[in-house]
Design a binder for these strands. Structure first.
Lengths: 209, 209
DNA sequence: AGCTAATAAATGAACGTTCATTCATTTTCA
DNA sequence: TGAAAATGAATGAACGTTCATTTATTAGCT
């Protein structure tokens, strides 16, 4: 047999509990904030006594770390899986991906920029590095379009931050069944982003193209 | 160099302390989050014993409430003072005002949307109402431009949220002496906003109306 | 399959610490 | 003299975490 690290399918109880801890902590952290959530509350959600949590995570900090590192890795992984799989325009692909992903994983996203300050320096640095890698994706798309004249932005890095802030704000107000479908939101934002980076002389009253 | 400068009639000692409490709490809340800050820490910053804080604020909650309600009132007040005082284009005036104000009051702004969930329902509702009033300012500007064809946005309320999210993200990355002046940031963002709402390149729907 | 040793998970109770808040007393100062 | 402000000590509650013990679950052996 292989080492003990690989678990037989029947030995799933422990992993199940660890996963339930993650889920409960995720929900609670997103709702009340890391510092305002007690291990006792998480334990209650999981249906276990507080001490039992320490069979799965060494400290409360490690739960937060796990959630944030996992989220960043999955975000980059999800993009990597999509990056070369479509013939869609890269900017459109990125905008639609970002909106979709951030609406699907609202809690993870919320925690990952809300609880940064509660991370120990090492883990903070790791998350920041990944975040910069993600931003670099969009910057690179803008630079490509800039090089062949499809886009016109004065500063691709500033434009990247502006666009990502704009898109990341969506989950703070969008609610399902609120009159706009997810697709409609994607289209609205895509249009604004495309116009914001499009060449087109000075705004105000110049004619199009 | 001992005391802080001018105490007018020395009758103002109590008010001075209350103000020092506000300042200390503001800084601490912005840095560590409301739930992670103790009354003891605030008292230490102020130079007083914890119990003394209760001569100025009935509870820790009330300090947060005071900070957030004051901030929203001052934000709307600052805009009101500027609204009709310039011949600048309304959209430009709003964008420049928002960026400037949010860079000047980074801590207040940060707290006001980061600690919303720590507010009691009544105070939360008050802050939300003020926030909606502030958003309505921009929405109204966009609707005016939409009516006479200067702008073209599919949904002024969505565009409002998009623009405000974009602008409010600036303090998370902008640092003085980081290669860009505040004026340059204003100009870069203004250009993107103007292009995003300008009529022109991307027809996506029938006209509203 | 059944038994057994080993291991993993959960319990229940406790640890010391820190928390927001209270209050009688003292200090400050107009 | 009187009121506001600050002190110093105390309150009970809640916190993260530990640990000896019990309970579940599994691997190795026959």
């Amino acid at each position: 047999m292989a080492t003990a690290a690989a678990r037989p399918a029947s030995r799933a109880k422990g992993l199940e509990t660890a996963e339930r801890v993650r889920k409960a902590a995720l929900r609670r952290f997103a709702q009340a904030g890391y510092a305002a959530v007690s291990m006792r509350e998480i334990a209650t959600d999981v249906g276990v006594r507080p001490g039992a949590l320490y069979n799965h995570f060494p400290t409360k900090q490690d739960i937060l770390k796990d959630l944030m590192l996992t989220h960043m890795a999955e975000l980059l992984g999800a993009w990597a899986a999509l990056e070369n799989s479509s013939s869609m325009d890269p900017l459109e692909r990125f905008v639609r991906f970002h909106i979709r992903y951030h609406l699907e994983r609202a809690d993870e996203v919320f925690i990952s920029y809300m609880e940064l300050r509660n991370l120990e320096p090492d883990n903070f640095e790791t998350v920041e590095t990944e975040r910069r890698r993600y931003e670099a994706v969009l910057t690179s798309i803008l630079e490509d379009g800039l090089a062949d004249g499809r886009y016109a932005v004065d500063d691709p890095k500033v434009a990247t931050r502006a666009i990502i802030a704009m898109l990341t704000g969506i989950p703070t107000w969008y609610r399902e069944g609120g009159g706009l479908s997810e697709k409609e939101v994607e289209d609205l934002y895509l249009t604004m982003v495309q116009k914001a980076v499009a060449p087109g002389s000075k705004p105000s009253r110049t004619e199009t193209g």
